[in-house]
Protein backbone atom coordinates (compact mmCIF):
# COMPACT_ATOMS: atom_id res chain seq x y z
CA UNK A 1 0.00 0.00 0.00
CA UNK A 2 1.16 3.50 -0.74
CA UNK A 3 0.43 6.47 1.47
CA UNK A 4 1.28 10.03 0.48
CA UNK A 5 1.27 12.59 3.28
CA UNK A 6 0.92 16.25 2.35
CA UNK A 7 3.03 18.55 4.47
CA UNK A 8 3.28 22.28 4.17
CA UNK A 9 6.13 24.55 5.16
CA UNK A 10 4.72 27.61 6.91
CA UNK A 11 5.92 30.66 8.82
CA UNK A 12 6.19 30.01 12.56
CA UNK A 13 2.91 31.09 14.19
CA UNK A 14 4.70 32.28 17.29
CA UNK A 15 6.92 34.60 15.20
CA UNK A 16 5.90 37.76 13.41
CA UNK A 17 3.93 37.04 10.25
CA UNK A 18 3.48 39.60 7.50
CA UNK A 19 2.77 40.18 3.84
CA UNK A 20 5.25 41.06 1.09
CA UNK A 21 4.62 44.01 -1.26
CA UNK A 22 2.81 41.76 -3.76
CA UNK A 23 0.38 40.78 -0.96
CA UNK A 24 1.69 37.22 -0.77
CA UNK A 25 2.79 35.80 2.56
CA UNK A 26 6.28 37.10 3.24
CA UNK A 27 8.51 34.07 3.59
CA UNK A 28 11.87 35.87 3.34
CA UNK A 29 13.83 35.94 6.55
CA UNK A 30 10.84 34.50 8.37
CA UNK A 31 11.41 31.31 10.33
CA UNK A 32 9.47 28.46 8.87
CA UNK A 33 8.67 24.92 9.85
CA UNK A 34 6.50 21.92 9.12
CA UNK A 35 2.96 23.13 9.80
CA UNK A 36 2.05 21.79 13.24
CA UNK A 37 -1.29 20.61 11.95
CA UNK A 38 0.45 18.47 9.32
CA UNK A 39 2.45 16.68 12.03
CA UNK A 40 -0.83 15.01 12.96
CA UNK A 41 -1.18 13.82 9.35
CA UNK A 42 2.32 12.34 9.38
CA UNK A 43 1.57 10.70 12.73
CA UNK A 44 -1.62 9.06 11.44
CA UNK A 45 0.11 7.82 8.30
CA UNK A 46 2.85 6.27 10.42
CA UNK A 47 0.33 4.70 12.78
CA UNK A 48 -1.51 3.09 9.88
CA UNK A 49 1.77 1.68 8.64
CA UNK A 50 2.62 0.37 12.10
CA UNK A 51 -0.80 -1.18 12.64
CA UNK A 52 -0.57 -3.04 9.36
CA UNK A 53 2.91 -4.43 9.83
CA UNK A 54 2.26 -7.52 7.69
CA UNK A 55 1.83 -5.36 4.63
CA UNK A 56 4.42 -3.54 2.65
CA UNK A 57 3.57 0.10 3.13
CA UNK A 58 5.49 3.10 1.85
CA UNK A 59 4.84 6.50 3.38
CA UNK A 60 5.89 9.34 1.10
CA UNK A 61 5.93 12.91 2.41
CA UNK A 62 5.15 15.49 -0.25
CA UNK A 63 5.44 19.25 -0.18
CA UNK A 64 4.93 22.03 -2.68
CA UNK A 65 6.97 25.03 -1.69
CA UNK A 66 10.17 27.07 -1.87
CA UNK A 67 13.68 25.72 -1.28
CA UNK A 68 13.40 25.94 2.51
CA UNK A 69 10.30 23.75 2.42
CA UNK A 70 12.66 20.77 2.30
CA UNK A 71 12.92 21.35 6.08
CA UNK A 72 9.34 20.22 6.45
CA UNK A 73 10.13 17.05 4.50
CA UNK A 74 13.19 16.38 6.63
CA UNK A 75 11.09 16.59 9.76
CA UNK A 76 8.59 14.12 8.26
CA UNK A 77 11.45 11.75 7.36
CA UNK A 78 12.84 12.06 10.90
CA UNK A 79 9.45 11.19 12.30
CA UNK A 80 9.46 8.04 10.19
CA UNK A 81 8.28 8.66 6.63
CA UNK A 82 10.13 6.45 4.12
CA UNK A 83 10.79 8.95 1.36
CA UNK A 84 10.02 12.50 0.37
CA UNK A 85 9.20 14.50 -2.75
CA UNK A 86 9.64 18.24 -3.00
CA UNK A 87 7.91 20.16 -5.77
CA UNK A 88 9.97 23.30 -6.15
CA UNK A 89 9.40 25.67 -9.02
CA UNK A 90 9.43 29.45 -9.09
CA UNK A 91 6.29 29.46 -11.20
CA UNK A 92 4.33 28.03 -8.26
CA UNK A 93 4.95 31.06 -6.02
CA UNK A 94 1.77 32.89 -5.12
CA UNK A 95 -0.56 30.04 -6.05
CA UNK A 96 -4.00 30.04 -4.46
CA UNK A 97 -5.62 26.90 -3.07
CA UNK A 98 -7.09 26.06 -6.48
CA UNK A 99 -3.71 26.13 -8.21
CA UNK A 100 -2.01 24.42 -5.26
CA UNK A 101 -4.52 21.58 -5.51
CA UNK A 102 -3.69 21.18 -9.20
CA UNK A 103 0.03 20.92 -8.48
CA UNK A 104 -0.61 18.53 -5.60
CA UNK A 105 -2.91 16.33 -7.71
CA UNK A 106 -0.25 15.82 -10.38
CA UNK A 107 2.58 15.59 -7.85
CA UNK A 108 0.76 12.95 -5.80
CA UNK A 109 0.48 10.78 -8.89
CA UNK A 110 4.07 11.39 -9.98
CA UNK A 111 5.28 10.54 -6.48
CA UNK A 112 3.40 7.26 -6.78
CA UNK A 113 4.73 6.19 -10.18
CA UNK A 114 1.91 7.83 -12.15
CA UNK A 115 -1.02 6.21 -10.31
CA UNK A 116 -3.34 7.57 -7.64
CA UNK A 117 -2.02 6.23 -4.30
CA UNK A 118 -4.24 4.23 -1.94
CA UNK A 119 -4.29 6.94 0.64
CA UNK A 120 -3.49 10.66 0.64
CA UNK A 121 -3.30 12.07 4.17
CA UNK A 122 -3.47 15.81 4.83
CA UNK A 123 -3.71 18.14 7.78
CA UNK A 124 -6.97 19.91 8.63
CA UNK A 125 -5.72 23.33 7.51
CA UNK A 126 -2.52 25.23 6.85
CA UNK A 127 -1.53 27.29 9.87
CA UNK A 128 -0.65 30.23 7.61
CA UNK A 129 -4.19 31.18 6.86
CA UNK A 130 -5.23 28.10 4.94
CA UNK A 131 -8.92 27.44 4.88
CA UNK A 132 -8.86 23.68 5.02
CA UNK A 133 -10.05 23.45 1.41
CA UNK A 134 -7.07 21.83 -0.30
CA UNK A 135 -7.95 18.23 0.68
CA UNK A 136 -11.50 18.54 -0.74
CA UNK A 137 -10.17 20.21 -3.90
CA UNK A 138 -7.58 17.49 -4.30
CA UNK A 139 -10.23 14.78 -3.96
CA UNK A 140 -12.31 16.59 -6.58
CA UNK A 141 -9.34 16.74 -8.95
CA UNK A 142 -8.31 13.13 -8.41
CA UNK A 143 -11.92 11.97 -8.69
CA UNK A 144 -11.73 10.04 -5.42
CA UNK A 145 -13.71 10.28 -2.17
CA UNK A 146 -12.70 12.41 0.76
CA UNK A 147 -13.10 11.65 4.43
CA UNK A 148 -12.02 14.83 6.11
CA UNK A 149 -11.55 16.34 9.56
CA UNK A 150 -11.13 13.03 11.31
CA UNK A 151 -10.69 13.03 15.06
CA UNK A 152 -10.11 9.27 15.01
CA UNK A 153 -9.00 7.01 12.17
CA UNK A 154 -9.39 3.28 11.63
CA UNK A 155 -8.47 1.27 8.57
CA UNK A 156 -9.12 -2.31 7.68
CA UNK A 157 -8.39 -3.70 4.26
CA UNK A 158 -9.33 -1.01 1.79
CA UNK A 159 -11.91 0.52 4.16
CA UNK A 160 -11.25 3.72 6.06
CA UNK A 161 -13.57 4.65 8.87
CA UNK A 162 -13.28 7.92 10.76
CA UNK A 163 -14.99 9.69 13.60
CA UNK A 164 -15.76 13.33 13.05
CA UNK A 165 -16.96 15.76 15.70
CA UNK A 166 -18.83 18.33 13.68
CA UNK A 167 -20.94 21.16 15.06
CA UNK A 168 -24.23 19.38 14.88
CA UNK A 169 -23.25 15.78 15.50
CA UNK A 170 -20.62 13.16 16.09
CA UNK A 171 -20.44 11.13 12.92
CA UNK A 172 -18.88 7.92 11.75
CA UNK A 173 -17.89 8.22 8.10
CA UNK A 174 -16.51 5.52 5.85
CA UNK A 175 -15.21 5.08 2.33
CA UNK A 176 -12.95 2.73 0.40
CA UNK A 177 -9.49 3.46 -0.85
CA UNK A 178 -8.24 5.26 -2.81
CA UNK A 179 -9.26 8.36 -0.91
CA UNK A 180 -8.12 11.62 0.60
CA UNK A 181 -8.11 11.69 4.40
CA UNK A 182 -7.61 14.82 6.50
CA UNK A 183 -7.04 14.68 10.23
CA UNK A 184 -7.48 17.18 13.05
CA UNK A 185 -5.37 17.83 16.12
CA UNK A 186 -7.82 15.64 18.03
CA UNK A 187 -6.26 12.48 16.54
CA UNK A 188 -3.56 12.44 19.19
CA UNK A 189 -0.09 13.82 19.84
CA UNK A 190 2.41 13.61 17.02
CA UNK A 191 5.66 11.86 17.90
CA UNK A 192 8.98 13.64 18.29
CA UNK A 193 11.78 12.42 16.04
CA UNK A 194 14.08 10.09 17.98
CA UNK A 195 17.85 10.29 17.69
CA UNK A 196 17.71 7.12 15.65
CA UNK A 197 15.04 8.66 13.44
CA UNK A 198 17.13 11.76 12.87
CA UNK A 199 20.15 9.69 11.85
CA UNK A 200 18.09 7.39 9.62
CA UNK A 201 16.44 10.34 7.87
CA UNK A 202 19.78 11.42 6.42
CA UNK A 203 19.86 8.30 4.28
CA UNK A 204 16.28 8.43 3.07
CA UNK A 205 15.55 9.60 -0.49
CA UNK A 206 14.38 13.20 -0.93
CA UNK A 207 13.63 13.96 -4.57
CA UNK A 208 13.19 17.48 -5.87
CA UNK A 209 10.99 17.87 -8.94
CA UNK A 210 9.70 20.83 -10.96
CA UNK A 211 6.51 21.50 -12.91
CA UNK A 212 7.86 19.81 -16.05
CA UNK A 213 8.55 16.65 -14.10
CA UNK A 214 4.97 16.43 -12.90
CA UNK A 215 3.48 17.65 -16.18
CA UNK A 216 1.81 20.86 -15.05
CA UNK A 217 1.72 23.83 -17.38
CA UNK A 218 3.33 26.79 -15.62
CA UNK A 219 0.67 29.17 -16.94
CA UNK A 220 -1.95 27.39 -14.82
CA UNK A 221 -0.28 28.18 -11.50
CA UNK A 222 1.30 31.00 -9.59
CA UNK A 223 0.16 34.49 -8.78
CA UNK A 224 -0.76 35.18 -12.42
CA UNK A 225 -3.15 32.23 -12.62
CA UNK A 226 -4.84 33.01 -9.35
CA UNK A 227 -8.61 33.39 -9.70
CA UNK A 228 -8.63 35.96 -6.96
CA UNK A 229 -6.67 39.11 -6.47
CA UNK A 230 -5.72 40.70 -3.18
CA UNK A 231 -6.18 44.45 -3.39
CA UNK A 232 -4.81 45.38 0.03
CA UNK A 233 -3.35 43.92 3.19
CA UNK A 234 -3.54 46.02 6.31
CA UNK A 235 -2.01 45.29 9.67
CA UNK A 236 -4.69 45.70 12.30
CA UNK A 237 -3.73 48.36 14.76
CA UNK A 238 -2.67 46.55 17.93
CA UNK A 239 -5.45 46.56 20.49
CA UNK A 240 -4.95 49.29 23.01
CA UNK A 241 -4.63 47.74 26.40
CA UNK A 242 -7.43 48.78 28.65
CA UNK A 243 -7.60 49.10 32.38
CA UNK A 244 -6.35 46.23 34.49
CA UNK A 245 -7.35 46.07 38.14
CA UNK A 246 -6.30 43.78 40.93
CA UNK A 247 -9.09 42.04 42.80
CA UNK A 248 -8.99 42.79 46.50
CA UNK A 249 -11.87 41.66 48.67
CA UNK A 250 -14.39 41.71 45.87
CA UNK A 251 -13.32 44.99 44.24
CA UNK A 252 -12.55 43.14 41.02
CA UNK A 253 -16.10 41.98 40.42
CA UNK A 254 -17.47 45.44 41.24
CA UNK A 255 -15.05 47.12 38.84
CA UNK A 256 -15.82 44.59 36.13
CA UNK A 257 -19.56 45.05 36.63
CA UNK A 258 -19.11 48.82 36.34
CA UNK A 259 -17.11 48.37 33.12
CA UNK A 260 -19.73 46.05 31.62
CA UNK A 261 -22.48 48.46 32.61
CA UNK A 262 -20.61 51.38 31.00
CA UNK A 263 -20.57 49.37 27.76
CA UNK A 264 -24.27 48.50 28.18
CA UNK A 265 -23.62 44.76 28.45
CA UNK A 266 -25.51 44.70 31.74
Amino acid sequence: MNIVVLVKYVPDVTGERRFASDHTVDRDGVDGLLSELDEYAVEQALQIKEQREDEEITVTALTVGPEDAADALRKALQMGADRAVHVEDEAVAGSDAIATSLVLAEAVKTANGGAVPDLVVAGMASTDGGAGVVPAMLAERLGIPQVTLASQVETSGTQVRIRRDSDAATEVISASMPLVLSVTDQTGEARYPSFKGIMAAKKKPLDTVDLDDIGVDASLVGLGASRTTVTSTTARPPRTVGEIVKDEDGTGAAALAAFLASKKFI
Binding site: R239, E243, K246, A253, A254
Partner: peptide, 20 residues
Protein backbone atom coordinates in the same frame (compact mmCIF):
# COMPACT_ATOMS: atom_id res chain seq x y z
CA UNK B 1 -8.06 43.22 26.86
CA UNK B 2 -10.27 46.26 27.20
CA UNK B 3 -10.68 45.45 30.84
CA UNK B 4 -8.87 42.93 33.00
CA UNK B 5 -9.12 41.66 36.53
CA UNK B 6 -6.12 40.07 38.19
CA UNK B 7 -7.75 37.63 40.54
CA UNK B 8 -9.15 34.19 41.15
CA UNK B 9 -12.01 33.38 38.81
CA UNK B 10 -13.60 31.20 41.48
CA UNK B 11 -14.31 34.31 43.56
CA UNK B 12 -14.54 37.02 40.88
CA UNK B 13 -17.05 35.28 38.61
CA UNK B 14 -19.63 34.32 41.26
CA UNK B 15 -19.46 37.85 42.69
CA UNK B 16 -19.95 39.31 39.22
CA UNK B 17 -22.85 36.98 38.50
CA UNK B 18 -24.49 38.02 41.78
CA UNK B 19 -24.10 41.70 40.89
CA UNK B 20 -25.62 41.15 37.45
Amino acid sequence: VDFGVVGDLHTVLPALTAQI
